[in-house]
Write a protein that binds this DNA or RNA. Structure first.
Lengths: 223, 223
DNA sequence: GTCTATACGGCGATAGAC
DNA sequence: GTCTATCGCCGTATAGAC
């Protein structure tokens, strides 16, 4: 079983190395050789375990997607329960989407941090964004939007989808940790302080969604 | 002068091809050979005109950055003039940031569409985001934020910077045109309808910023 | 000067020998 | 499971055509 552990160790080491490097340089910016080197294994082992490079990429994405989805759904259902029989507050729903990213102390873990940056890369990539994000995250997101609609009755679906799009753009840009806002703000804001970033983004996004109610009521009033 | 045009033609053809391909596949996903083929020129010509691959990338970014910055600053100053001596409305300032992207009919031009997608790639890339975006766009953005502050007196700088970050994330994700929202919304929303996307994003972002006033006043009141 | 054809050294993914 | 070999494509330098 020591041997079996070691096998698993190497598999994990490859996934970890791939995750970290793909997050930093994107799919094409990383070679299997670099991954193998980082993981301390032979060049061919990645191919042995995962098949071609593309499949390794999928494996990296998949590993944490399921965990993250379940955490988020848990947090969301808890929020619904807490507010029942009323619909939850918009901000509480948004929090349920953000907090699983931070609260389980995985923000410290470089693995999760890399994973978030990788998702940011995938999300805004014309090559992967449309298909992979859909594949891994859409069911969770639909549940999320359904709850949000109970808190925002009368808001058109189109607004809700574009609202989610804004949320997603803001969140993934923050988690890409490009160091951009550090420069822009002369180090007042820090790219790598994800909890701080989330505090501000949650407020901003909740305001964006909440305003849709006012807008849709105004529209109705003029009819 | 026909000869001179031809020189410019090939130079431009290389820039156009590079722009389009970099936007779709990222820096590392594109080879100089692919660019040359798309442009209909010899492999070595890109190197002759622009030097190494990396310098060609910069040249592509720079070409339209200056134009875009000047358009945005124009729109912003016009907004300021219109409202004077009062500060402009938040939503009008946001519009001044978005409309230059759309209004000059360049949305139709595939060149500009590619450029926007390329900016989206650069913006969320840990490799380029921090430095290149800063280099090309920060002065324009600072002017923009300064005007926004006149419309939002008392809002802390940190909120303003994170607000801009949210704006930037939402906007660049939309302009990345990943097709993601088409899937998510079952084609109710279209990735390639940029004017429509902007309408929704402007409202969302304006609400996010406007809410900061209420928040900062609430904070002040409790002191 | 502008541009093309070609050549070079290096490194890519991965298949097959071990 | 590991190591090596292979073949193709990479960015770039150069030589010379127009």
């Amino acid at each position: 079983m020591a041997a079996e552990n070691k096998k698993q160790d190497k598999r994990e080491a490859i996934l970890n190395a791939a995750e970290s490097l793909f997050a930093k340089h994107g799919y094409d910016g990383v070679t299997l050789r670099a991954i193998a080197k980082e993981a301390g294994v032979d060049v061919a082992l990645a191919n042995y375990h995962f098949g071609p490079k593309r499949d390794l990429f999928d494996a990296v994405l998949l590993r944490r997607a399921q965990i993250l989805n379940s955490w988020r759904l848990e947090a969301l259902e808890a929020t619904v329960q807490n507010a029942a029989p009323n619909p939850p507050q918009v901000k509480d729903i948004i929090r349920a989407y953000f907090e699983p990213l931070l609260k389980r102390s995985q923000v410290q873990e470089p693995g999760w941090k890399s994973y978030y940056a990788l998702i940011a890369y995938v999300n805004s990539s014309p090559e992967w964004g449309g298909t992979l994000m859909t594949q891994f995250f859409d069911p969770m997101i639909h549940r999320f939007l359904a709850v949000l609609k109970t808190a925002l009755p009368g808001v058109p679906d189109k607004s809700m989808y574009w609202g989610y799009h804004c949320l997603s753009g803001a969140l993934t840009l923050a988690f890409a940790q490009t160091g951009r806002i550090d420069h822009l703000s002369d180090d007042l804001c820090k790219s790598d302080d994800l909890p701080d970033a989330c505090d501000y983004i949650v407020d901003f996004v909740a305001a964006g969604f909440s305003d849709m109610i006012a807008a849709s009521q105004k529209e109705t009033a003029t009819l």
